[in-house]
Design a protein around this nucleic acid. Structure first.
Length: 341
DNA sequence: AGTGCAGGCCAC
DNA sequence: AAACGTGGCCTGCACT
């Protein structure tokens, strides 16, 4: 096939040999023809209708008139919950059209939905476990962590930070949590791989403790066949000594597991303590979405509920684990789940 | 008609 | 060889 996309990129084939038509490919193609954009637009509304608008209505319980999910408490390898039938942990929010799905989740008359979510919990845990003093201090000072990362990496003063530089640092911060590669960062930021590798090299120069944490974690996994959360929960890593493509996946999973798993432990501890803590308050805990708890609360009782639940969440690691970095919880409220965010 | 896979895409 | 972690659900298709 002779088609060459911008930057010399070529269409890709999947494992079956079919040409890929994924959104990233169509995004590139959209710069040279109108059709790919129309396909992307159609795919978006098609996805929203089939997976959410139509499917959610099929899950309305006849007795309660509400949608009820099921949670697997051992569904994810890291200790996260998994939500099924329907999955209420992947309700759209990022696109304007998607947010309209979230607007359909509303509180009963006289009540409000309250969303409390941990702010940057995985980066805080990373700062703690890797012992990165600059990051820990930034969280203590309430500094914008992506801007701080950008400032450190690119030698740009915080008061001269630009959205574009901050965006790149944000992608790097996410990548670090996931076990970054030059290839993956290049794809996400749509920059040359050599530039992406340069960013990563610079990052590890500025925060050498992060690389040490990663190396130590992989070494531990290779020796023991598992890694651990801060609370001591073990996560098996049976593929860690595999050869070939599996090796890379296993290493990245091992790097991510203690961080994601510790965050999962923290919110579980908060959830376990929550019923007793809010006893007597006209509030119900409805959903957990990994770093968020959603409540339905009688109007007039919202402020107190937020105070109580925030306290439980922010102190959920105590007393088993003393974090160097405090946990911080953002709260929102509204008639709909969209408004509560 | 049921099962399973691949590709795709939604969330954190 | 593949290429950033954890999941679930949808459609289309091959297969039994």
């Amino acid at each position: 096939m002779g088609l060459t996309l911008p930057d010399g990129k070529m269409p890709k084939k999947g494992k079956t040999g079919a040409w890929s038509t994924g959104a990233d490919i169509l995004e590139d193609m959209a710069t040279i023809h109108d059709l790919p954009r129309r396909i992307l637009d159609w795919r978006q509304v098609s996805k929203l209708k089939s997976t959410y608008t139509d499917a959610l209505q099929d899950h309305i319980n006849a007795e309660t008139g509400r949608v009820h999910t099921s949670y697997s408490i051992a569904g994810a390898n890291t200790g996260r919950l998994a939500s099924t039938d329907p999955n209420l942990q992947n309700i759209p929010i990022r696109s304007e059209e998607g947010r309209r799905i979230r607007e359909a989740f509303v509180a009963e008359e006289g009540k409000l939905l309250v969303a409390l979510d941990y702010s940057q919990i995985e980066l805080r845990i990373l700062a703690h476990v890797a012992g990165i003093e600059e990051l820990k201090q930034a969280f203590r000072d309430g500094v914008d962590i992506h801007a701080l990362t950008a400032s450190e990496m690119f030698n740009v003063p915080l008061d001269e930070m630009t959205p574009e530089i901050r965006r790149q640092a944000k992608a790097i911060n996410f990548g670090v949590i996931y076990g970054i590669s030059g290839f993956g960062l290049a794809r996400n930021l749509r920059i040359p791989r050599s530039d992406a590798q340069g960013f990563i090299d610079r990052y590890f120069e500025r925060f050498p403790g992060i690389r040490a944490y990663m190396d130590d974690t992989i070494a531990f996994a290779k020796e023991h066949g598992f890694v651990q959360t801060l609370f001591g929960r073990k996560i098996n890593t049976p593929e860690i000594n595999a050869k070939g493509p599996q090796a890379g996946f296993a290493k990245r999973a091992a790097i991510n597991a203690p961080i994601q798993g510790t965050a999962a432990d923290v919110i579980r501890r908060a959830m376990i303590r929550m019923p007793a803590a809010i006893e007597g308050q006209p509030a119900k805990m409805l959903l957990q979405v990994h770093d968020e708890l959603l409540f339905e609360v009688e109007e007039g009782a919202v402020d107190r509920l937020i105070d109580t639940a925030r306290g439980v969440m922010e102190n959920a690691a105590d007393p088993a684990v003393k974090l160097d970095v405090q946990l911080s919880v953002d709260a929102g409220q509204g008639q709909s789940w969209a408004q509560a965010h």
